[in-house]
């Protein structure tokens, strides 16, 4: 009798233990011990500009002043990013999506929405224009058809030479007000020109949604301490002695081209 009672008690206890062990709260955001980290949504926009004014709508032949007395019009401008992330106060990063993105500033692909961004204070946005060598020289067809890294989508792969074009900026310029327009073309590629950017930001993420805009002035790529005059040299594809020197200047200047705002 006692033995049966003991067995029954043991079984009852076992059932109770199983019951409670299957009642853990749903883990929504990876928190431990039942804590759900509050998150918000982030809208990240990359906005092309010239001299702090938005790029003119497509189809309008509007030239804006740049350095060296020239004026310019951008007809094509897009770039690829990796390691796209927000940077926290303590230096930790929160990756945005899978860290890759393609921004087309003269097309319609320049605003990106990211969900479940942990709330808190952030001090910057980081990204790399370019990739590590394995990614840059890997098979580009491994990316899904609608992924920003698929070259059938972004058109930014050299194919033959291998590797991606990290940034392409094409357009027209006038040497002076009455001049016949010429063309410029700057394509950033090859591992030596992988460029990391960190944009300082004072951002407190709380509430439902935040919008951050990265405003990029195209003219600043050609101005600054080392101005580039289109009439002298208007093309660089990042290979060859002349092109490499020009691309280095182009990218050094670019460090002053970016501004980031919470809007």
């Amino acid at each position: 009798m006692l033995k049966n009672r003991l067995i029954q008690s043991f079984l009852f206890a076992a059932v109770v233990a199983v019951f409670f062990s299957s009642c853990e709260p749903e883990d929504t955001d990876g928190g431990s011990g039942g804590f759900v980290e509050p998150t918000s949504e982030l809208e990240l926009a990359f906005v092309g500009q010239i001299a702090d004014e938005p790029l003119p709508p497509k189809g309008q032949d509007i030239y804006k002043e740049k350095s060296e007395g020239e004026s310019m019009m951008v007809t094509n401008w897009s770039f690829l990013m990796s390691n796209l992330a927000l940077v926290k106060e303590n230096g930790d990063t929160v990756q945005l999506g899978d860290g890759y993105q393609w921004a087309d500033l003269t097309g319609t692909r320049n605003v990106f929405n990211y969900k479940k961004i942990p709330q808190g204070k952030y001090t910057g946005l980081q990204f790399t224009m370019g990739f590590d060598s394995a990614t840059n020289h890997g098979n580009p067809q491994v990316w899904p058809a609608d992924h920003p890294m698929n070259p059938n989508l972004n058109g930014l792969h050299w194919g033959w030479a291998g590797g991606y074009i990290f940034q392409a900026m094409d357009g027209r310029y006038k040497a002076n007000a009455g001049a016949t327009p010429g063309s410029f073309s700057f394509h950033t590629a090859t591992m030596q020109f992988v460029t990391r950017y960190f944009l300082p930001l004072d951002l407190s993420i709380e509430g439902a949604k935040h919008r951050v805009a990265v405003r990029i002035n195209a003219d600043r790529f050609f101005g600054g301490a080392q101005p580039i005059k289109f009439a002298d040299k208007s093309v660089s594809h990042s290979e060859g002695a002349h092109d490499e020197l020009l691309m280095r200047i182009f990218l050094d200047n670019s460090l002053y081209a970016f501004r980031i705002y919470e809007e």
Binding site: P151, G155, L156, H157
Partner: peptide, 12 residues
Amino acid sequence: GGELSQQLNAGM
């Protein structure tokens, strides 16, 4: 360019 011998991106 590319395997398809064709640039598919309009801007490029």
